[in-house]
Structure formats: C-alpha cells, structure tokens
Design a protein around this nucleic acid. Structure first.
Length: 466
RNA sequence: GGCGCGGUAGCCAAGUGGUAAGGCCAGGGUCUGCAAAACCCUUAUUCGUCGGUUCAAUUCCGACCCGCGCCUCCA
C-alpha cells in the first residue's frame, strides 16, 4: 500500500500522488507572530512535520512553503502600543517561533516566507483581480466579490448560492456588498503602517498573502495545502477563490487539515488559565520529546485533549522505547537467527508503514512498535533473541524514530560526561567486588544526583540519563 | 439552524460484518547485597441510546442523545 490522505475537498481518504514528477509542492499556513505560539498551534506544526517526514519516507522530494504572517490587526495594535516598528515587534516572535520549532525537532520547510516581504506581489495580484472584475472598492479598501466566483464554498461544503449580492450589509467599519465578501486590501488608517503600491496605499488582507506566496514559490497548482481545521472557512475558502480567479487553474489538489487541540476538554483561553506555550511546559519540567510524542501520537484528524496526565504518560512511553533500544544495543546475544523473532520484526516494520500510510495513523504505527517491543523483550529474557535478530530490531527503532524522533534525549546543560560516568561505574563495580557496599551505594547516589540511573543487569551495569 | 469531527476499559487510543491492537495508571511477579532501574503477567461477555438488516453488528441502515469545532480573528 502507498500513502493515503484525507482530502477535505472530496471528504475522502485518497491515494496521494503529486501532479507531476516526484516533488511534492506543498504550502502550509504558518503562525501569526503577534505572541508566542501555544501548544494548540504546535499540534498543527507537529502534524506538518509528520507529514513531511512520511512523504519523504514514501519516496517523495519536498518543496514546502510556510508563511509567517507578520502584519495583522493584533500585531499592529501591539506594536503601536509598544512604540515599536512592525518588523522589530514581529522579529522577536518569529525568532521565538523558529527556536520552538527547533526544540520540538520540527523539520525546516524549504521556504519560510514573510508576508511583508511580498507586499508588491500582493498588490500586483490584486490589480489583476480588479482588472478581471472580481473586486470592488469601498472607502479605499478593495474587496473580493464572492458572487463572481461560482465555486465558492466547495472546500467548506457550504452552500452560498442563496446569498445574492446586492443586499447591502454593514459589517465592521467598512461597507461591503455582501456579508461574505472579504478584504483583499485595507485602506490606510491613522497611526497604522501602510505601504505605497500600484493599487494605492494600504495594507494587505490576511487571505491574499497565502495565495500570492504560494503562487510565487510553487506555481499555480499545489500538490498539497495543509492547515488547522479552523482555517477551512473562511481562510482556505478565500484562498481558493483568489487563486483560482487569478490563474484559472485548480489551486490545490489535496487539502489536509488537522483537528483542534483542547485542554482538559475545553478550548484554550487565557481567561480559563489553560493557555500554555512550550516555555510554560518546559518550565514545569516536561521535556520537548514528551510534548512532541503526545502531539504526534494521536492521529491528526482526531481532536486531541491535552492533559498533564497525557504528558506524563508520553514520558513513560518514551522511556520504555529508549530502554528497549538501549537493551538492543548492549545485550550479549548468542549467535544464530531466530526465524520467529525475525518474522515478528518484519511484520512490525510492515505494520508501522501500513499505519503511517493510512492517513498518518500514528496510533496504529505505534501499536506495531510496542507489540514487537514486548515480544522481543520476552525473547531477550528467555535467551531466544539471537545475534542475527539484532539488526532488524534496531532498524525498526530507526524507522520509528525517523518519524517520531523522541529517542535521543535533549541535551541538558552542565550534564556529567559519559567518560566520568564510566569511571564512576568502574569504581562502584570494584567497591562491590570487595563487598564495600557503602562505597558502592554512595557512588550510585552520587550518579543519581547527577541525573544518571544505573541498571544492574545480568549482562553487567548499564546506565542512562534520567 | 447550516457545515464538519467525535462518543470503545480509570485515562489516552486502534480497529474490523464473525466475536475487542497498543500506551499510561493500578495490582501481581522476576531480577538484586539491599535497592533502583528494567522486564513480564493480569485488567472491556463489551464498543453513547433505541430500533432495523443479517446466521452473525462495536463494525451496515435509520432515529435519537451527548461532547467539540467552524459559520467573526484563530492552528
């Protein structure tokens, strides 16, 4: 089987294939950098990362664009309030976002692009839309007239045919012909930054940036466009209207959307006090790997209820996987090959791939790994896991980690070196041999304080970091 | 109201027309100088409710109930 993904456009799980050659042209909606990104945002960004990794594992090359929205109402309001330039204000949070992505081990898209670096292209596109009759002006702003785009609603599966243009509706401070029409370009306002362009002064609306940057970097038709479900309407619907009105070609073949993250069953909000950034979680002692694992382990199309219990559970599960890998690397094994174990390893590989191929069903993929882990541990205990079985089992862990990437602990600053640990272990072993248990226990405690856990096994002493 | 997602053990969660993966927690055990760590075992006659189709339904159909999201900015 090959990779299948749920396509919001058709509402079905379909085989994924790029339109031409082997390179996937993908666009994903990035953050609006008015503040630190929160874990709900990162649920989606982790999903992008899993998608990237599994597309590559499926043999595709990637050409992936992610935008940084660095101009919007909140940004302007906050920057003005702090007396900062837009760029100064957004640079700070853009860098924080990129740092957080690195901490969560998210692969870098091929292009990370800022809206404000593409204002002129946006203005030119809006001019073209105006020339082609898709827009109208009102008080210096330019609106997209959705009545001119017959297929409006095809992504969100809403029927707008009953909404005829002409009934004038006042919304916000601007006057629009139709309540669903949206701003392509906003007229300058007192005290707000604006750009001088071929369509006059002002600033871009939110939706136009994605259409324009996607076209600029990837061309008229994308293989795949992803985002959170909350963006289906109106953002992605509007992107389709703009892009298809501009090029006359389909905007994206596949639309893939990740479900929402809830905290304790409720939407995150500052007033409820359940609003978390990564920094908050790390401050409480949770590791990036735990967060990554939790966000990755629930399939992306299912709502994810974030709890601290879930985070602890993730930590324990990762420990078990790491312990298994350590055991595979260090166990003394008898020569030979156990065919039964090898068959189980092979079916675990297949199970993992089948799960990922099935619309990135990470829960199913994980199940295959843990099932093998148990069988292998039983065999290791019984001495029936042989030297010839080691490689294939380790390959499974490599395959697993090529997607989940949680097995290597994050570096802790000031940690004791491996050499020092080994030296202390040697000293303890010597103390034990001379039955100086007090000394042995003292060394053990000393190491524990430094975050090193010793395991006395029948194959000798094994250690790991906490 | 419209559109969409979901309701499976204490928690998270996969799944199939033929009798419930996996993870966490809990309980029990193995190992050990003692520990720790590690590992193993056990844990849903039952899959929101009620009807229907079927030899057989958690899985298909219908109705209903409940939770969440979008419909205004939002991953």
């Amino acid at each position: 089987m090959s990779l299948q993904l749920h396509n919001t456009l058709t509402q079905r799980v379909e085989p994924f294939q790029p339109l031409s050659d082997n390179t996937v042209k993908m666009y994903t909606c990035g953050p609006t950098v008015y503040d630190f990104a929160h874990i709900g945002n990162f649920r989606t960004f982790v999903f992008y990362d899993l998608l990237r990794r599994w597309l590559r594992a499926s043999g595709f090359q990637l050409d992936h664009v992610m935008n940084i929205t660095d101009v919007d109402d909140k940004i302007i309001r906050n920057a003005v309030a702090q007396g900062k330039s837009l760029r100064d204000y957004t640079d700070n949070f853009t860098q924080a976002f990129l740092d957080d992505c690195g901490t969560l081990r998210l692969e870098r898209p091929e292009h990370i692009v800022r809206a404000t670096d593409h204002i002129n292209e946006m203005a030119e596109s809006i001019a073209k839309l105006e020339a082609d009759g898709f827009t109208y002006r009102s008080d210096g702003s330019v609106y997209f007239r959705i009545a001119k785009f017959a297929e409006y609603g095809k992504l969100s599966h809403n029927d707008f045919s009953g909404m005829v243009a002409g009934a004038r509706v006042d919304v916000d401070e601007y006057e629009k012909s139709d309540a669903r029409d949206f701003a392509l370009w906003k007229a300058p306002k007192e005290g707000e930054p604006n750009w001088d362009t071929c369509i006059g002064p002002g600033r871009p609306g939110w939706h136009i940036e994605c259409s324009v940057m996607a076209y600029h970097y990837l061309g008229a038709t994308l293989d795949l466009h992803a985002g959170g479900v909350d963006l289906i309407f109106p953002h992605h619907e509007n992107e389709i209207a703009q892009s298809e009105a501009l090029t006359g070609k389909p905007f994206a073949k596949f639309w893939v959307h990740s479900e929402f993250l809830l905290v304790d069953g409720q939407k995150m909000s500052k007033s409820l006090g359940n609003f978390y950034t990564l920094r908050d979680l790390f401050g409480r002692g949770f590791t990036p790997e735990s967060v990554r694992y939790l966000l990755a382990s629930v399939p992306y199309r299912k709502g994810l209820n974030f709890t601290f219990e879930g985070l602890n559970s993730a930590k324990t599960a990762i420990d078990r996987l790491r312990n298994f890998k350590l055991r595979l690397e260090t166990a003394k094994l008898a020569e030979g090959l156990n065919d039964e174990i090898e068959a189980k390893a092979n079916s675990a590989h297949l199970g993992f791939r089948a799960g990922m191929d099935d619309d990135l069903n990470t829960a199913e993929a994980l199940g295959a790994v843990f099932e093998f882990l148990r069988d292998a541990n039983v065999a290791l205990d019984a001495g029936t896991f042989l030297e010839g079985n080691r490689a294939r089992a380790l390959e499974l862990m490599v395959l697993f980690d090529s997607v989940f990437e949680v097995l290597t602990p994050s570096e802790a600053a000031g940690a004791i070196s491996a050499d020092d640990v080994e030296a202390l272990i040697a000293a303890r072993t010597a103390a034990k041999k001379s039955r100086d248990f007090a000394r042995a226990d003292q060394i053990r405690n000393e190491l524990l304080e430094k975050g090193v856990i010793l395991e006395d096994t029948k194959d000798g002493v094994r250690w790991k970091r906490k």
